[in-house]
């Protein structure tokens, strides 16, 4: 199925990806090609097949709700572009 330019722009927006104007035709072409390729799944007979979410059919383990991590905030925030007083800085959200 060929995707339209508008669809590609809408997908990019959902994925929060800035796509430059001049790159859009290539994304339209390549994503259409990929979707076309995966569309062949449609023909597979899977009527009574149970979907496989996990290769080992494991159940998720549980653990006691205890504090196990120490406070490493300063260390983690060393990787952030903008912090102040232990807080991450972002552009103003509410005027």
């Amino acid at each position: 199925m060929a995707l339209t330019r508008r669809q590609v722009e809408s997908i990019a927006n959902l994925a929060r990806l800035q796509i430059n104007e001049d790159e859009i035709p290539a994304y339209v072409r390549n994503l259409s090609r990929i979707i076309d390729f995966v569309d062949q799944l449609e023909g597979a007979g899977t009527e009574h097949v149970h979907p496989m979410a996990h290769p080992l059919n494991m159940s998720q383990p549980l653990r006691a709700d205890e504090v196990t991590e120490s406070d490493d905030r300063a260390r983690f925030q060393a990787n952030a572009a903008a912090v102040e007083a232990g807080l991450y800085l972002v552009p103003k959200v509410i005027e």
């Binding site: 390549n30 799944l41 899977t46 097949v49 979907p51």
Partner: peptide, 27 residues
């Protein structure tokens, strides 16, 4: 490209046709 492919196949209305179908084929 991969993020956008993934976003598309998981987007409203397409989940069953792509993701769920692929998980059945995986089985």
């Amino acid at each position: 490209r991969r993020i956008m492919t993934g976003t598309y196949v998981l987007s409203a209305g397409y989940y069953d046709a792509y993701y769920l179908k692929a998980q059945r084929v995986r089985q």
